[in-house]
Design a binder for these strands. Sequence first.
DNA 1: GGGTTATATAACCGCAAGAGAATGTAGCGC
DNA 2: GCGCTACATTCTCTTGCGGTTATATAACCC
Lengths: 114, 114
Amino acid sequence: MPFDVLAEPVRRQILDLLRERPRMVGELTETLGLSQPGTSKHLRVLRDAGLVRVRRDAQRRWYELNPEPLRHIDEWLTPYRWMWDSRLDALERHLDTMPDEPEHSGDDQRDPHE
Amino acid sequence: MPFDVLAEPVRRQILDLLRERPRMVGELTETLGLSQPGTSKHLRVLRDAGLVRVRRDAQRRWYELNPEPLRHIDEWLTPYRWMWDSRLDALERHLDTMPDEPEHSGDDQRDPHE
DNA sequence: GGGTTATATAACCGCAAGAGAATGTAGCGC
DNA sequence: GCGCTACATTCTCTTGCGGTTATATAACCC
């Protein structure tokens, strides 16, 4: 799962830049404001995760986006996605079956009215 | 952005467990197979990120899922989502607009040393 | 009140990840 | 060939994070 890869803000920024168009390392280095090895190391992580691909052009390397691994994130997100639409009724209904009322000491089961 | 929160596999597992139903800390501790303070620390991170909420019930605390912050991830993912559907024609079209060094566009694609 | 349960916090440790400097390497132009 | 450009890799350092044990806190039961 590429979650840890995306945990880095710089790497997300790289992906956002590559979403526009492929870029060279020097271009990214200048835009990101870090050292060239720093950029290369982040690109290596992204490459290992399959999120970017390289095109060699003489000494230059054009990094291009490969969004396919992001599908895993999308799939992980899927069972949650319905929730923030119907959260109010669905989750609330769930909570009604739960213990409640902290001031009620011994009474740990509130009676749901359905 | 809760990416770094979700980078932890244990925390994703906690969210998956809470997706079923709210749970107590002891329950999670046993299921996850780590120490109780370990569980509490992860829950603290999730709480600070707004991904879970607590309900006090005497000494117990029922942790419930709050999926709303996941919406940020979904939103970040949005501009990428169309890509893995029409990737082949879209990305390829993109690459055609790139400086591909027309003099030797095809023959320096090999990777002799990586 | 005393003891127990349930959880949080603190203190500490080990490791892995990110940052920077130095170096290695491939391909270009001359 | 030589030097330069563009990039990768290695090394070291430091920081942060996840893990544990030990301790604190709060509410229950007797």
